[in-house]
Design a binder for these strands. Structure first.
Length: 480
RNA sequence: GUGGCCAUCGUUCAACGGCAGGACAGCGGUUUGUGGUACCGCUAACGAGGGUUCAACUCCCUCUGGCCACCCCA
C-alpha cells in the first residue's frame, strides 16, 4: 500500500476514534476572486462615497447595468482584436445558446444604455456614472484580480474641449480628495484622418535604416496591425528606437490640434497636474483625440516598510526591473490607477446617431491599495454610541422596546440581546467603543429606573427610566 | 499565456527525517449585576494526491492555490 495512502487512512481512523464533527467540506473562492469583509469594506464605502459625491456635484447621474451582456457588445465596442476581448473576457453560452460575456469594462454597456434608451432625446450632454464589477480572466497579481471594481464616468453629446477637461478634472479631484498624489498623463491621438496620416509617417520612420530589425517580435507585428502601439512598448530596444520618432501632436489636423490645446489650457487654469506624454496610446480601439491615464506621482515601493519580512523583500527586489521602465517613460506604467478619453465615433459605430462621447474608468481596488499605503486614518462617525444592556427576562423585553425607541429618536444604539451575562455585554460595549451603557436589571425594572454608565470614567448613575432621552442628550452635549 | 518565489491553528511567525511550538484573536475562569489592565486555563493547523524512507509537516514529483514580474490592463 502506498505510504501516503496509509498515512491518510491512519488519520481517518484517528478521526473516527475521536469523532470530531469537524469534517466539513471546504469550498474556496475561485482563482483571482476576493471576498471583501468587514474592515476591508470600509475602504470600498469610502472610495465609492467619494466617487458618488463628486460625480453628482458635476452633474453625473448614477446608473446600474447588468454584469452579463451579449458578447458581441464588447467584440464590437471594445474591439475583437484587443487583448481584453480576445484573451481575457469571460465568454460562455447561455442556456438558450446566446453567447454572453461577463463585462470586462464599463463603457460599452453605457454606450448601449445611451442608444437603447433613446437618450439622444434627452437634453445633451447626457452624463452618467456607475460603480460596478468587471471581470477579466488574467493571471492574478498585485493590483490585478479577475473580478475588480471600477468607477466609470461617461458623457455623451458634447464635443467641446471643456467636456474633456471636466472628465479629467473629476478623475483628478477624486484622487486628490482621497489624499493621493497623482499626475495625469495626457496625449491626443487625433481623428481618423490625421491619425492615419501620422501612422504612415510612423511606419516610414521605423522602416528606414533597418530600424525594424531591432524591434521586438510583438512590435514587428504591431507595425502592421496597430503602429501606434509601438510607442508604449517597454522593450529597451523599442524604447531606444522610438527616441526620435515623429510625435503625433505635430501631425494633428487643425481642429484636433485646437481641441487639444484648449483642453490643456483648461487643465492649466484648473491647476491639474499633468504630463504631456507623446507615448501614451490606449489599448482600446474606440478612442480618438484626447486620451489620458492617471498615474501615482510617486512610485509606491519607495514608501514600503523596511524589509522586516519576506514580502517586503520580495516587493523590493522586483523594483530593480521597474526602474528600467521608469527611465523610459518617466513613471511606472503598470501602476496606472485609471484612464479614459474621447470616443466620438463609438455611439454611431454601435448603431446610434452620430454622437460625440468621452469618459474614464478607474480601479477601485488599486485606489484602495494606494490609500492603504498612505495609512490615511478613517474619520470616526460623529455620534457617540449608546449600548443597551439587560439582565433577566423581564428586563430583556423592556430593553428591546427601549432600544427601538432610542433608535427611532436618532440615537446611535447598539445591543447584544442574545447575551445574558452583563460582563459579556459590557465587553461588547467596549469593543464597540460606546460612550455610554444603559443597564437595565430586575431591580431597575421594579423601580422604574435605569443605570447610566459612563464608559470612560466608569461612573454610574441611577436615573428615572422616563428621563433617559433627556439625560443622554445632556451627557452627549457635554462630551462635545 | 510565460517565468520566479511560496504553502503550518481564524491571523501571524517558528521548529524538526522521529510527540508540531509561540504571539495575536476567540472562548472560559479569577470577579455567578459591571468592560478596558493583569494572571490562569481551553479551543485550534501541516492545501490535495502520489513517491523516497523503518519513519515525511520536513526530501522528490504532480495538481490546486497564493504572492511577484512579464504580456496586457484598472
Amino acid at each position: 500500500m502506498p505510504r501516503a495512502k496509509m498515512r491518510r487512512e491512519n488519520k481517518l481512523k484517528e478521526k473516527e476514534k475521536f469523532p470530531k464533527e469537524k469534517r466539513e467540506r471546504t469550498y474556496s473562492r475561485l482563482r483571482g476572486m476576493r471576498d471583501v469583509l468587514f474592515d476591508e469594506y470600509r475602504y470600498y464605502d469610502l472610495v465609492e462615497g467619494k466617487a458618488r459625491d463628486l460625480a453628482e456635484v458635476y452633474g453625473f447621474r448614477r446608473v446600474l447595468t447588468p454584469v452579463l451582456e451579449k458578447a458581441e457588445l464588447y467584440e464590437r465596442a471594445t474591439g475583437k482584436t484587443t487583448d481584453i476581448v480576445s484573451k481575457e473576457m469571460y465568454v460562455f453560452p447561455d442556456k438558450n445558446g446566446d453567447r454572453v460575456a461577463l463585462r470586462p469594462e464599463l463603457t460599452p454597456s453605457l454606450v448601449r444604455v445611451y442608444i437603447e434608451h433613446g437618450m439622444f432625446n434627452l437634453p445633451q450632454p447626457v452624463k452618467m456614472f456607475m460603480v460596478g464589477s468587471c471581470f477579466r480572466h488574467e493571471k492574478p497579481q498585485s493590483g490585478r484580480q479577475r473580478q475588480h471594481h471600477q468607477f466609470g464616468l461617461e458623457m455623451f453629446g458634447e464635443e467641446k474641449p471643456s467636456a474633456d477637461a471636466q472628465i479629467i478634472l473629476v478623475a483628478y479631484n477624486f484622487f486628490k480628495e482621497l489624499q493621493l498624489d497623482v499626475q495625469v498623463q495626457i496625449n491626443s491621438i487625433g481623428c481618423k484622418e490625421c491619425r492615419s496620416e501620422y501612422e504612415k509617417k510612423l511606419i516610414d520612420f521605423y522602416n528606414e535604416r533597418g530600424k525594424r530589425s531591432k524591434l521586438c517580435l510583438d512590435c514587428k507585428k504591431r507595425l502592421k496591425k496597430n503602429p501606434l502601439r509601438l510607442l508604449d512598448c517597454k522593450e529597451p530596444a523599442c524604447v531606444a528606437a522610438r527616441e526620435d520618432a515623429p510625435q503625433i501632436v505635430d501631425f494633428l489636423c487643425e481642429p484636433c490640434k485646437n481641441h487639444f490645446i484648449k483642453v490643456l489650457e483648461y487643465l492649466d487654469e484648473l491647476n491639474v497636474s499633468y504630463n504631456l506624454n507623446p507615448y501614451l496610446v490606449r489599448g482600446l480601439d474606440y478612442y480618438n483625440r484626447t486620451v489620458f491615464e492617471v498615474w501615482p506621482s510617486s512610485p509606491s515601493v519607495a514608501e514600503a516598510k523596511p524589509a522586516s519580512d519576506e514580502a517586503g523583500a520580495v516587493a523590493f527586489s522586483g523594483e530593480g526591473e521597474r526602474e528600467a521602465g521608469e527611465r523610459s517613460t518617466g513613471l511606472p506604467r503598470q501602476a496606472s490607477l485609471g484612464g479614459g478619453g474621447r470616443y466620438d465615433g463609438l455611439v454611431e459605430y454601435m448603431g446610434g446617431r452620430p454622437t460625440p462621447g468621452l469618459g474614464f474608468g478607474l480601479g477601485i481596488e488599486r485606489t484602495i491599495a494606494k490609500i492603504k499605503e498612505k495609512n490615511i486614518p478613517f474619520k470616526k462617525d460623529g455620534r457617540p454610541v449608546v449600548f443597551v444592556a439587560q439582565l433577566g427576562d423581564a428586563s430583556k423585553r423592556k430593553a428591546m422596546v427601549l432600544f427601538e425607541d432610542l433608535r427611532r429618536a436618532g440615537f446611535s444604539v447598539r445591543q447584544a440581546f442574545t447575551k445574558d451575562s452583563l460582563k459579556v455585554q459590557l465587553e461588547e460595549a467596549n469593543r464597540l467603543e460606546s460612550k455610554f451603557s444603559l443597564i437595565l436589571g430586575q431591580k431597575e425594572v421594579m423601580d422604574g429606573t435605569i443605570l447610566v454608565r459612563d464608559m470612560e470614567s466608569g461612573i454610574q448613575e441611577v436615573i428615572d427610566f422616563n428621563k433617559i432621552k433627556s439625560n443622554l442628550e445632556k451627557r452627549i452635549a457635554e462630551k462635545k
